[in-house]
């Protein structure tokens, strides 16, 4: 028969083909995280969009002073920081499962995931840095 998979299967008919379970709860926790962070993001992102785009004047009133004014309050700092972290981890985990589903080779899977993790790390570090070290008194240059 031209089919090569059947010939391979006959080589070792009783060899286990599935690697042993890793016995950890990583997939469980990431599944739970997706549900909880999704719920939190509905509030955070819709609230953010409402404030930025609809509430008094919407997008036209946004300027440096507006952002500086918001970030002078720890509440908005916390809001934006949690939105950043939750969105990055939520989206990153979603992309991780998509890569797991659709990458055909282990090599492709590995490199796509590395690219994803590096991108996530860069955005998280950069965003966190800005939220915490934001200085409203930048000298006009």
């Amino acid at each position: 028969m031209a089919d090569s998979t059947s010939a391979l299967a006959l080589d070792k008919p009783r060899s286990p083909r599935r690697p042993a379970a890793r016995r950890n709860n990583f997939e469980l926790y990431s599944w739970v995280f997706m549900r909880i962070s999704g719920l939190a993001l509905v509030v955070l992102v819709l609230g953010h969009l409402f404030i930025m785009n609809i509430l008094d004047g919407g997008v036209h009133r946004i300027n440096f002073a507006f952002v500086a004014g918001r970030w002078s309050s720890p509440f908005w700092q916390f809001w934006d920081l949690s939105m950043l972290w939750l969105a990055q981890l939520h989206g990153g985990n979603g992309l991780r499962t998509i890569i797991d589903d659709y990458a055909r080779k282990d090599n492709t899977r590995f490199w796509l995931k590395m690219l994803l993790y590096v991108a996530m790390a860069v955005i998280l570090v950069l965003g966190t840095l800005v939220v915490f070290t934001f200085d409203p008194d930048i000298p006009a240059s």
Binding site: R18, A21, R22, R23, N25, F26, E27, L28, S30, W31, T97, D100, D101
Partner: peptide, 12 residues
């Protein structure tokens, strides 16, 4: 349950 808790289990 342990077997199905793995990466290839129910969470997919």
């Amino acid at each position: 349950l342990d077997i199905l808790n793995d990466a290839e289990g129910v969470w997919r």
